Computed example of a mutant assay.
Amino acid sequence: MSTHQHSYLAHDTKGDYLKRLRRIEGQARGLQRMVEEEQYCIDILTQVSAMTKALQAVSLSLLDEHLGHCVLEAARAGGPEAEEKLKEASDAIARLVRS
């Protein structure tokens, strides 16, 4: 895990991320309720798909922030941190593609 001190907070997007994550949290509670109430499997799967897409959207947005700020800044500075940031981004993309 990186000890990088900069964050997407500098881009004033924290509130947007938190709002989106709270909405996803609500979707998770809704899914639990649907299972508890033994609702129709296809309806549950539809909601799982919607929640998955919402998480993917947050992931892609965070990745874009990381590339546009952290990786770009490190690349401009050069040195070993640039290679580290590129590797981090590549690893994150690989994890997202596998998920």
Rank of each mutant, 00 (worst) to 15 (best):
M1E: 12
M1Q: 10
T3Y: 10
H4I: 11
Q5I: 11
H6T: 14
S7Q: 08
Y8P: 00
Y8E: 15
Y8T: 12
L9Y: 11
L9K: 14
L9H: 11
L9E: 15
L9V: 09
L9G: 11
A10M: 06
H11P: 02
D12P: 00
T13V: 15
K14L: 14
G15A: 15
G15F: 02
Y17I: 00
Y17W: 00
Y17K: 00
L18Y: 01
R20M: 10
R20D: 07
L21C: 05
R22S: 13
R22L: 14
R23E: 08
E25G: 11
E25T: 12
G26T: 01
G26Y: 03
G26W: 03
G26D: 02
Q27D: 09
Q27K: 03
A28Y: 04
A28I: 12
R29M: 09
R29Y: 02
G30D: 06
G30L: 04
L31Y: 08
L31D: 10
L31F: 05
Q32D: 15
Q32H: 08
Q32T: 09
R33P: 00
R33Q: 08
M34F: 06
M34D: 05
M34R: 03
V35H: 08
V35N: 05
E36D: 11
E37N: 05
E37Q: 07
E37M: 03
E37F: 06
E38Y: 02
E38F: 01
Q39F: 05
Q39H: 10
C41Y: 10
C41A: 11
I42T: 13
I44P: 05
I44M: 11
I44G: 08
T46F: 08
T46Q: 13
Q47M: 03
Q47D: 01
Q47G: 00
Q47P: 00
V48E: 05
V48L: 14
S49V: 06
S49W: 07
A50F: 01
T52D: 15
T52G: 09
T52Q: 15
K53R: 15
A54L: 00
L55R: 05
L55T: 10
Q56F: 06
Q56G: 14
Q56W: 05
A57Q: 03
V58S: 04
S59K: 05
S59P: 06
L60Q: 14
L62R: 10
L62C: 07
L62S: 05
E65A: 11
H66C: 02
L67V: 13
G68K: 08
H69W: 04
C70T: 01
C70H: 03
C70K: 00
L72Q: 13
L72N: 13
E73G: 07
A74W: 04
A75R: 15
R76H: 10
A77H: 04
A77K: 03
G78M: 06
G79C: 09
P80S: 02
P80A: 04
E81S: 00
E81G: 00
A82G: 09
A82E: 08
E83K: 14
E84P: 01
E84T: 09
K85A: 13
K85C: 09
K85L: 14
K85W: 05
K87M: 14
K87Q: 14
E88F: 13
E88L: 12
E88N: 07
A89F: 11
S90D: 04
D91F: 02
D91N: 01
D91G: 01
A94L: 12
R95G: 10
R95S: 14
R95N: 14
L96I: 13
V97F: 02
R98C: 07
S99R: 13
S99V: 07
S99L: 15
